[in-house]
Write a protein that binds this DNA or RNA. Structure first.
Lengths: 192, 192
DNA sequence: GTCTATAACCCGATAGAC
DNA sequence: GTCTATCGGGTTATAGAC
């Protein structure tokens, strides 16, 4: 879908319907036959992102990686690659939309939220799969939400500063935190 | 400045010059006498945010709080208050602009980056002031960048989900991390 | 410096032939 | 289902009187 690429490159508001038609080599009548409004097109794009989380994002990132904690950092490494490949101008398309649309219509906001949920669900599963290595008191869901915060915040800073180091610094601190949690879990297992 | 409020509420692209003129009770000619373009107005708004970090943000947040680590969380609590007061629709105005403008003109991108620098500088100073309680190997600058990532990512999720819990979860995990770092530093002091 | 009027352009969406 | 032409309105910015 051409609209998917343009929304990612230029944002939703800044991409005109004429831009999409020109890039896709289509005509106004055809597009409006399938999508009643530009917002309908956006909703379809968000559905595709949601459906693509597992096959397009997680599966390639996790190929050959079984360790659940390693999987978390393998996914973050994917975002790093995209940042570096675009000289720090690529951003998470969902995060862009989340902050670009200030008062989105309810279905749009819900569709963005669903994308976040899918991402957090996948990471939460990693932490649950690694449960034996984490302290019993650590909330796995909260840790997954935290991980998404770091990814989005790291991408935001790296893009703004045109500097991959800000993303790396954020991920490095998460790595330290997880290492400390694993050490704490080990101690607790030893003392009980 | 009226433009400041509207850019925050509706975003930059979605706020028309006519909106600003109407809200401010001014006329087109007057505004363009002081600002040659809408982007000039944005740059002035970003300058005001930058100059306001200390007097408008840090000083009120830190009044009566001397402990440097407590200051970090007092600042984060300010963003929480703003989120709650707006039913999770307020966001960090700088973060909004950072992701709304996909390929900003260089001076705009630089002005946003300068705002982030000012925020990170202030938090880095907190961690430096708390140096005795942190492990010697922990990079204070990286920890400050990490803290901004968590704030921005937490705000993004809370806004999208219309749920303060996602912000709280992110901050709670940072709290756990800092507590673990303080414990680690204590151990290191004890063993040397 | 502030006013009104408007230029010049771009937007999303539609109409109606084929 | 796809085409071309266009509507009606909103956009930033300017012109020129006061």
């Amino acid at each position: 879908m051409t609209a998917m690429r343009l929304f990612q490159e230029k944002g939703y508001e800044s991409t005109s319907v004429a831009d999409i038609l020109k890039a896709a080599g289509a005509n106004s009548g055809s597009l409006y036959h399938f999508f009643h409004t530009k917002q309908d097109l956006l909703l379809e794009v968000l559905r595709r992102y949601r459906d693509g989380i597992a096959p397009m994002l997680l599966e390639p990132a996790w190929r050959g990686i079984a360790d659940p904690i390693a999987r978390v950092f393998a996914l973050l490494a994917r975002y790093r690659e995209a940042l570096v490949a675009s000289e720090c101008s690529y951003g998470c398309p969902i995060g862009n939309l989340a902050l670009e649309l200030h008062e989105p219509d309810p279905p749009v906001r819900q569709a963005i939220a669903t994308n976040f949920d899918g991402w957090v669900d996948a990471i939460e599963r990693c932490y649950i799969d690694a449960s034996a290595r984490l302290p019993a008191t650590t909330d796995r869901r909260a840790l997954a939400v935290f991980t998404l915060s770091i990814m989005e915040g790291g991408v935001m800073q790296a893009r703004t500063q045109r500097r991959i180091e800000d993303f790396d610094r954020s991920v490095a601190m998460l790595r330290d935190f997880v290492a400390l949690l694993e050490r704490q879990a080990k101690e607790q297992r030893g003392t009980t």
